[in-house]
Structure formats: structure tokens, C-alpha cells
């Protein structure tokens, strides 16, 4: 095998072949997918805009994907549905507007595909982000104090979240999420893939 041209063509062919087969063909095959009209006439899914979309950037820059997935595996394959991470498996249509792939590959923490439906309390989300062991004893998720300011005034501002008694200190009786913290929770609240889709039955 001494002809470099022969190797050159072979090398280029193999990689173009796999790119077409694995990536371009599925893209073409599913370019027809559209939004689904639910029973009450709304369209699902909707592209993210405004604060939830800003929160998606916070989710990305803090590297949440390294411990959390956003996908529910089908029934009978793993225990995702039995664990209550979703009512149904997730399908391509759920992600049709995603500007970046956040499906993830690691579950050091639980799946978040439906976290907005599973844990709708904003207070819980804030306390959990501030220090995960407040709401989830034993958690190894890192605390995110930099998304909050703390305060101990007798009259807390309206957007303050009171810390539970046992977590209060003389200088920290409540936490106030900063804008990034609020955006992140807006994003988490938007994660809800529970609409019934025909292809996910």
C-alpha cells in the first residue's frame, strides 16, 4: 500500500460516509417533525424565550449536564418511569427547538427532563441550589452560594427566601436569588415533557 492518493481517498470516504449515514440522514428524515396540537389547542413544544432561555445559559455555563440528564428512557429499559422522572419516554419531538444538546450522559444526580412538573416549588429550588443538603440530606451536589445574596434584616425584602431555622446564622437568616439564580429556576420550571405524544405511547 504505497499510494498516498489511495489512502487519502479511502480515509476521506470512510468519514464522510459515516457523517452522512449517522447525522445527515436522521436530520433529513426528521426535518418533517412539527409541533403537536394538544387537546386544548396549544402547540407543543414551544421554543424557549425570555427568562427561561436566559436560565438555559446559566444551566450551560455552570455545567449542570455533567451530573444531570434530561431524557426519560422507555418503560422496561432502566427504571426512569418507575422512579417518577417522567410519565412517558422522551422522543425527538421534545427536543426539536433545543439550540444545544442538553440530554446529558451522566446521572450522578437524578434526571431533570420533567423537573418543572416534579418539583414546582420555587422556594424548594432556591434552597436546594443555595445548599442542596438543606432539602436533600446526603446530597453531593455542590452548593451554589454565588447565585444568592444573604441577609439578616428584621424586615426581609419581598423576594427573600427564609432559611429553615436550623440553617440560620446571625448573619444569614434569608437568601435573595440574584438574576442568574432567578433565570436558572425559571429554566428548571420550564422543564416539563409530560404532554402526551402519539409517538411516545
Amino acid at each position: 500500500m504505497n499510494r498516498s492518493l489511495f489512502i487519502f481517498i479511502g480515509v476521506i470516504f470512510t468519514v464522510v460516509f459515516s457523517l452522512s449515514g449517522l447525522v445527515l440522514v436522521p436530520d433529513w428524515q426528521f426535518s418533517e417533525i412539527g409541533q403537536f396540537k394538544t387537546a386544548d389547542g396549544t402547540l407543543y413544544p414551544q421554543p424557549l424565550t425570555g427568562p427561561p432561555d436566559a436560565g438555559r445559559h446559566v444551566y450551560m455555563d455552570l455545567g449542570c449536564i455533567y451530573c444531570h440528564t434530561q431524557q426519560v428512557r422507555p418503560e422496561g429499559f432502566g427504571a426512569d418511569i418507575e422512579r417518577g422522572w417522567g410519565r412517558r419516554r422522551t422522543v425527538m419531538r421534545d427536543y426539536m427547538f433545543d439550540p444545544i444538546n442538553l440530554t446529558g450522559t451522566m446521572r450522578t444526580g437524578p434526571d431533570l427532563a420533567n423537573i418543572g412538573a416534579r418539583q414546582p416549588s420555587r422556594t424548594w429550588q432556591y434552597l436546594h441550589l443555595y445548599n442542596p443538603v438543606i432539602t436533600s440530606p446526603g446530597s453531593i451536589m455542590p452548593p451554589h452560594p454565588f447565585l444568592f445574596t444573604v441577609g439578616a434584616d428584621a424586615a426581609p425584602p419581598p423576594d427573600a427566601v427564609a432559611l429553615p431555622k436550623e440553617w440560620q446564622t446571625p448573619t444569614a437568616k434569608y437568601i435573595i436569588p440574584n438574576s442568574r439564580g432567578r433565570f436558572l429556576v425559571d429554566y428548571l420550571m420550564s422543564l416539563d415533557k409530560s404532554v402526551d405524544l402519539p409517538e411516545a405511547q
Binding site: 449517522l22 447525522v23 436530520d27 426528521f30 444538546n101
Partner: peptide, 18 residues
């Protein structure tokens, strides 16, 4: 393929792992 607009989110996942 992972960052250009108008590509299905799951195709991005495939391109990512490809």
C-alpha cells in the same frame, strides 16, 4: 452540527457523540 441553528436537538446529540 452541534451549534448551528435549525437543527433538531437530538441530531445535535448524535453529531456530538459521532
Amino acid at each position: 452540527l452541534t451549534q448551528a441553528p435549525h437543527i433538531n436537538g437530538t441530531v445535535r446529540a448524535i453529531a456530538n457523540w459521532w
